[in-house]
Amino acid sequence: MSTAPAKAAPVERKELHHPKDTMLREDRLPHIWCPTCGIGTAVSCFVEALRETNIPEEKVAVVSGIGCTGRVAGYVNLDSFHTTHGRAIPFATGLALAKPDMKVVVFSGDGDLVAIGGNHIINAARRNMNITVICINNFIYGMTGGQCASTTPQIAKTSTTPTGNTDYPFNVPYLMDACGATYIARWTVLHIRRLKKAMGEALNKKGFSFIEVIAPCATLYARRNRLGTGFDLMKFYHDNSEIQHGADTKMVDIGFQEKIICGKFVDIDKPTFLERYRGETNGGGK
């Protein structure tokens, strides 16, 4: 890391407008996320991906649950709803059924989606509800101060597993695969181009699409496990991510500081809930 020469550079403070500001609630920035948190980067990729899809912005809604990632809904300049803990997917289900012309995106965290909201995510995937789910996985409950999550790898220390987690974590892509999700990908926030592309593909996908985004939590996960800064976690992703498109999801579980297999694992087509309900395809319905 290079540093500036000793002489203090004059600070320029002219009014600047970030090109992504039109898609953000600029009046709420800077956001609440810690320095080096990966959620902001994921949102950055999302708004860029959304712009590239050409889906009209007024026809996109973002729904979040509770937690650090739960705050995403409050920063995107779209119709957005911040639900109770774990319930983003049922809200999105109601909205997607009432407004079939809208693209409903659930943007939430691992604790929100696969722990307290676990029943909702598996059933929404099973129904092939027409929603896109972006799950930020930082392996920990951030907002409440670093408790063990259902995605925390074994051994990892959290405030509720002070001697190291003994539980088996979820392999989230495998879980989603078992439930019948039509699109499953995993990227780290370091893979900005690939993550953006995956988000674009998920947004254009009809049915239940799911992206797991591995993101650094420096304040809690890295600190409690002495993994350095958020930037150190990014370096770890750089050195330990392995891209395996089409990998068997059974094999993509993540151990503590072990290899992270990334890629697009599943991309299939099948009728959505509403198509079956309206009898537009085979598979029952009236």
């Binding site: 970030h18 090109p19 996320w33 902001g40 950055s44 953006k196």
Partner: peptide, 13 residues
């Protein structure tokens, strides 16, 4: 645009 995309704060472009 890499700085713009990777910045978690929407602070550089």
């Amino acid at each position: 645009n890499l700085c713009e995309d990777i910045c978690p704060e929407f602070a550089i472009y």
